[in-house]
């Protein structure tokens, strides 16, 4: 039967149609722009798509997409294109998302979004890599202790600002040597690390400076062995500053490890800020 005059007509384009991919990428951008914890996600597969006309103008894309966790934390300003996908041997995490994306005047905007994330199964991880550690709950006492011990060790060695814990982002129990691996986000405060007596009185800086720490804490007979490396991201101003005509704003750079940086130093004038590894 031909459609009634004026009735909406459903389109079923191919999932890899370039216009559908554009809608899916707009959806993934939306996820990452509204993410305040955990890790950025990247598009893995477009599962289903339906396109409805929208009155009076435009089209609505109903998309079901699969995403994968990257190694870039939500607070990391590295562009998604420069973020690596978390490998299966690191215990990958998948996202299942349902989106409504409006296309109007050539622009895509997200109308609704619903996502759920799930880690890969233990069987799948161990099928690929029998000895690889699995993710464990972030509120496990061994994890919270490892994050606290690692942050204390980091602040004790740090000559600059006192960093406070923002979020424990992932954790694994490593069998040999028996240890806890933890990744956690930190934020710079208005206290000096060497002078802090009461951390509860420290406040996050107005010009936000975040970082991601990776630590391994191993229990030993004579105490514990703490190893921690923190990558401090470039500062993130609250509002973009106006730029003179013809001068581009500094672009964010990937958080590539520097060789050795004992203390944060301001980049030379005119150069974009780099992450610091401490």
């Amino acid at each position: 039967m031909p459609p009634q005059p004026g009735a909406p007509v459903l389109k079923l384009p191919k999932c890899d149609d370039p216009e559908v991919e554009q809608a899916a990428l707009a959806a993934v951008d939306h996820i990452n722009q509204h993410l305040h914890q955990g890790y950025k996600h990247t598009l893995n597969r477009i599962d289903k798509v339906k396109v409805w006309p929208r009155r009076p103008f435009g089209e609505v894309f109903h998309l079901e997409i699969d995403t994968l966790e990257t190694t870039c934390h939500a607070l990391d300003p590295t562009p998604l294109a420069n973020c690596s996908v978390r490998t299966q041997t690191q215990h990958a995490v998948e996202g299942d998302c349902d989106f409504h994306v409006l296309k109007q005047d050539g622009q895509f905007s997200v109308l609704s979004a619903k996502c759920e994330s799930t880690p890969d199964s233990a069987e799948d991880v161990h099928r690929l890599c029998p000895d690889c550690p699995l993710l464990i709950p972030l509120n496990d006492s061994r994890v919270t202790h490892a994050a606290d011990a690692a942050l204390a060790a980091f602040n004790a060695q740090n000559n600059g600002a006192y960093y406070q814990l923002m979020e424990i982002a992932r954790a694994q129990l490593v069998p040999l040597p028996a240890s806890t691996y933890v990744e956690f986000a930190v934020g710079a405060t208005d206290c000096v690390a060497k002078e802090v007596t009461d951390p509860t009185k420290c406040n996050l800086l107005a010009e936000k400076q975040y970082g991601l720490c990776k630590a391994t804490v191993a229990e030993k007979l004579a105490g514990e062995d703490v190893s921690v490396t923190c990558t401090i991201f470039p500062t993130q101003p609250a509002a973009p500053q106006p730029q003179p005509d013809g001068v581009a704003a500094p672009a964010a750079e990937p958080a590539a490890p520097a060789a050795d940086a004992a203390a944060p130093a301001a980049p030379p004038a005119g150069q974009p800020p780099h992450p610091q590894v401490l």
Binding site: L12, K14, C15, N44, R45, I46, D47, L68, Q88
Partner: peptide, 25 residues
Amino acid sequence: FLIPPPAGAAPPVPPCPGKIRHFKI
């Protein structure tokens, strides 16, 4: 009559789901 596809022709690509960009879990 059924007309066989020409020899060497690529099989039709299903419209959905799309390609896997990294790996499937």
